[in-house]
Design a protein around this nucleic acid. Structure first.
Lengths: 221, 221
DNA sequence: CCCTGCTTTACGGGATTCCGTAAGGATGCT
DNA sequence: AGCATCCTTACGGAATCCCGTAAAGCAGGG
């Protein structure tokens, strides 16, 4: 049975690697793009032509360059496809290994698989494709395992955006106002202080400056 | 003329992509590894066997996993090779795009090329390999261009160590004491404040936290 | 020697952060 | 409803940071 597959990744080297893997599936017709917007257009066009894609394999983060994009990240594109192309199966293939983010992603019914880029990424990707073709789901073992553990020592998007604002020079009071304006809860100055306190303990930071330095080193912002 | 090449990247997909590119150079004998320590061992062994590698293409950042590594990053490995295998030509292939860091890297005479992973990464890598084979150097155009720009602030070692202490969580008063103990002048609290003030103006930072974030982004600490 | 310019150091007051205590609100369980 | 728990928010005092002013020290030039 012929299957149409689209892969999307900004790094040429990764695209090439994934293509090499897909070549082992002889029944597949594979196309690849390097921008989210291109992926969106190809998917929509195929749908219009009554020859839709069956599977979409995409990275999550895309470097921005001179080409202005409507969809800046894989997440955004996947979210849009959820309603516009509900029959499309999606496998995310990313270095992202933060549980919170992955959980949210695979709560989207379109997303049938999550594969962590890593040393055995291509092997896992093969498994994921096989699974999805057989209507099963797949997530990388290290993620699946982490999801079982209950010690949710997790850092949320809220925390990230909080620290990010700090790193951009806002005072805690300014952040409070910013959160109020953007309807991000909690937005009280006290809550911001409390969250920061928890983060400082978690990351063993003496003060906010060190906290930002640590989070930056971890590549979270 | 036969050339031995070693490539090192933890992501399997990238390794595959790079291998595909290297296949277009028919005279090359290519090996690949996924850990810095493996790269080190292979390079040393080849040297011992009197059949050394001519070219080493490596990523800079490697995810750590259960395998404990002596060399945690490409930088560390490259620094070690500088003295142990001075004849080995190195091309770094990384997403890193911070000038200062790249400058420090290519100040190492072994490093003949720097290629930025990105949409045209493989194309540039091909150019880099060709250049290095012809005894020329290569750095990705976007980096080369950025290096020309002269808005490269004068920043002293004193400034660096000052900001570094901040990023490690010391208060300004603690830094004053630290400087006194280590005979770093000036060490008065007021002087430290004054220096920080100048830095904040230079780097357009609202506060110390943002200053540290900026300096980290520049790769200065 | 004095003047000038530069840097280090000191001091003070206002702003911000830090940290503990506690009130108010939502949720879930019995 | 009553109770426990978790989370948000508020408040206040201590510590720290921020920033301007100013004195002291040290070169170089006239």
């Amino acid at each position: 049975m012929r299957r149409k597959v689209l892969i999307s990744d900004d790094l040429g080297s990764i695209n090439r690697g994934v293509l090499a893997v897909l070549d082992t599936f002889s029944f597949m017709e594979v196309h690849s793009v390097q921008y989210c917007d291109d992926a969106y257009l190809k998917i929509k066009k195929a749908l219009n032509d009554k020859d839709p894609y069956h599977l979409f394999i995409t990275d999550l983060s895309f470097k921005s360059d001179y080409r202005k994009q409507r969809y800046q990240s894989g997440e955004e594109l996947i979210a849009a496809l959820r309603h516009e192309v509900p029959d499309l199966k999606v496998i995310a293939y990313s270095v992202e290994d933060r549980l919170q983010k992955i959980k949210r992603l695979i709560s989207n019914p379109n997303v049938k698989g999550y594969v962590c880029k890593g040393r055995s990424g291509l092997k896992e990707l093969t498994e994921a494709i096989t699974a999805v073709c057989e209507n099963r789901h797949f997530v990388s073992p290290q993620i699946a395992q982490a999801m079982l553990r209950k010690d949710d020592f997790e850092i949320t998007d809220y925390d990230i955006s909080l620290v990010k604002q700090l790193s951009e020079g806002l005072s805690q009071e300014e952040i409070s106002l910013y959160f109020k304006r953007n309807n991000i809860m909690p937005c009280g100055l006290s809550s911001i202080e409390k969250h920061l306190n928890r983060l400082k303990i978690q990351f063993k930071a003496n003060n906010v400056t060190q906290l930002v330095a640590i989070i930056k080193d971890l590549g979270l912002i």
